[in-house]
Computed example of a mutant assay.
Amino acid sequence: MRVMPPAVRKAALVIHIISSVGWLGAIAGFLTLAVAGLTAGDPQLARAMYLGMNMIGWMIIFPLSLASLVTGIVQALGTVWGLFRHYWVLIKLVITALATLLLLVHLQPVTAMADMALSTDLGPLDMNAMRVQLVFDAAAAMLALLVTTVLSVYKPRGLTRHGQRLSNKQHTLPRSSKSAST
């Protein structure tokens, strides 16, 4: 495994943190708009909320989710943590990848809602099930991103089977091989 030089590692970490925190913040804004759209009694206000959600989703949230996923993979591959070595890294990868895929699925009804808001006045009870679903989906995304944040900070112990094999292999290498591989 090749470890990135410290300057590159730190730059990649900064980009990863910025994209991940930005993604979390954008989801918080999206959730706020979803709640406002659900509770809006004024059709013009509802229209503005759903148009804003569509723009934030495609122009901010989706690019940040991709940036977070890619920079997370770069961080894992270029550091001692590895991509499949520790459970917490693997769980973060799975959550981030699933969240990004689900985001693509979730953005379809957001776009449909924005198109509907443009073509008709939305009354307080129109499309209520979809409005509730948008709030629920945004809250679930917030929870998933908070879990990845907690995992990043606490880094729970535990090696995967792959990580255990690598660890055992490193411990059984002759002393001269260990120093040559670092």
Rank of each mutant, 00 (worst) to 15 (best):
Q44Y: 08
P5V: 06
L31Y: 12
Q75A: 06
V135L: 05
A139H: 07
Q75L: 11
A67L: 14
R85T: 14
L166A: 10
A114T: 02
S181T: 03
G25L: 12
G82R: 07
V110M: 12
L134H: 04
D126W: 10
F84D: 02
W23L: 15
T148E: 05
A28R: 03
Y50N: 00
I15Y: 05
A139V: 07
A76D: 06
D121I: 04
T160Q: 07
D137G: 02
T149V: 14
S19I: 05
L122M: 13
L102N: 14
Y154I: 13
L101F: 14
P109W: 03
V70G: 03
S65A: 15
Y154V: 15
S68K: 02
H106M: 09
R165T: 10
S181H: 13
M113P: 01
L122K: 02
T71V: 04
L64T: 11
I56K: 02
W58F: 06
P124F: 09
I56E: 09
L151E: 02
R131I: 04
L24W: 10
L122Q: 00
I73S: 06
S152A: 15
V150L: 13
L122F: 01
Y154W: 15
A112K: 11
L45M: 11
L104G: 15
G29R: 05
R85C: 04
I61P: 00
M53S: 09
V94D: 02
S68Y: 05
V70L: 14
V89K: 06
H86N: 08
A26D: 01
D126S: 15
A144Q: 06
T148D: 07
I95V: 12
I73L: 12
H171I: 06
P174T: 03
K10W: 13
V150N: 02
V94M: 11
A34T: 01
G163C: 05
A117L: 04
D115L: 12
K10N: 13
L101C: 09
R161S: 13
I27E: 00
R2Q: 11
P109F: 05
Y87S: 00
L104F: 15
D137H: 08
I15Q: 06
L143E: 05
G72I: 07
L33T: 00
V153H: 07
V8P: 01
W23G: 10
L90T: 13
I91V: 15
I18T: 10
A99S: 15
A26H: 01
A180I: 11
L143C: 12
A34P: 02
Q108Y: 09
A114E: 01
M1H: 10
A97S: 10
I56N: 07
L98I: 12
M55R: 14
H106A: 14
K10T: 13
D115K: 13
Y154D: 08
S181L: 15
M142W: 09
N128F: 15
V21R: 08
S152F: 08
A36T: 11
T100V: 02
L104K: 03
